[in-house]
Simulated scan of single mutants.
Amino acid sequence: MACVIRCSRRQKICCGVTAIVVILLVVVLVVLFLTVFKPKEPIIIIQPVKLEGFVFVASPDSKLELNVTLGVVATVKNRNHGSFTYQDSTATVSYRGSLVGEAPINGDTVPDHGELNVSTSLAVQADEVLKNGNFRDDYFNKGVLNFTSASTLQGKVKILKIIKKKATSLSTCYVSVFVKTNTIDTTCQNKLEF
């Protein structure tokens, strides 16, 4: 004997309306996550650099050592609907492929649609820059020294205080120091990976 379930007309209408509402809700959520809540790269703006330390040492064995410490402030603008919490990291600076400096980056949280000023001291080993065979041509003839700064921030993105995703923010900045005018031009490329 087969069991037959009979539904009243009201039950069928209620189930149909519920199914339509659920489908619309799913479509709206998918559209929101593909547009509004889609993760965007942070904007990093390097503020004017200040000189914090200058050490020139001539050792008895005729070896010259020159180290420069720069105060760097970077403003990180988070364009996402979620906060980004990152761990301690290190930024590196290179001149024509040679590592010439490092700067510690302390872990912190950038709030959603907020800004955070990240301050650090960058120790540039100027004697490494001077040893480079291209330094004289760059400094005297071209009048510009080009540096590359790279940093990787690993952390978590929290969207709507519910969804947590591991994320890595990769930042590469190209810094041109113009010798004659004592000015700096900075261009940064940022990428957020999940």
Rank of each mutant, 00 (worst) to 15 (best):
M1T: 09
C3A: 09
I5C: 10
I5Q: 06
K12T: 09
K12W: 14
K12R: 13
K12E: 08
I13G: 01
C14R: 10
G16T: 14
G16Q: 11
V17E: 05
I23Y: 02
V28C: 07
T35H: 01
T35I: 03
V36K: 13
P42E: 00
I44K: 03
I45Q: 06
I45A: 05
I46M: 12
I46V: 14
I46P: 01
Q47H: 15
P48D: 04
K50D: 09
K50W: 09
L51G: 05
F56D: 09
V57L: 10
S62T: 08
L64W: 05
L66H: 05
L70Q: 11
V72D: 02
V72M: 08
V76H: 02
N78Q: 04
N78R: 07
R79D: 04
N80L: 05
H81V: 06
G82A: 07
S83C: 00
S83V: 00
S83P: 00
T85D: 02
Q87M: 09
D88V: 04
D88R: 02
A91Y: 10
T92M: 06
R96I: 08
G97L: 10
S98Y: 08
L99K: 11
G101K: 13
A103L: 08
A103G: 05
P104V: 01
N106H: 07
D108N: 13
T109D: 01
T109G: 02
V110D: 00
D112T: 00
H113E: 03
G114L: 00
L116D: 01
V118E: 01
T120E: 08
S121D: 13
L122M: 15
A123E: 11
A123R: 12
A123T: 14
Q125S: 10
K131C: 04
G133R: 08
N134R: 11
F135Q: 11
D137N: 15
D138P: 01
K142P: 07
V144N: 09
V144A: 12
L145I: 15
L145M: 15
T148L: 11
A150Y: 03
S151E: 03
G155N: 10
K156D: 13
K156Q: 13
L160N: 03
K161T: 07
I163H: 13
K164C: 06
K165T: 06
A167D: 02
A167N: 05
T168A: 08
T168K: 10
L170D: 11
S171V: 15
S171Q: 14
T172D: 00
V175I: 15
V175F: 04
S176P: 02
I184R: 13
D185F: 12
D185M: 10
T187N: 12
Q189H: 07
N190E: 14
L192H: 04
L192V: 14
E193Y: 08
F194R: 03
F194I: 08
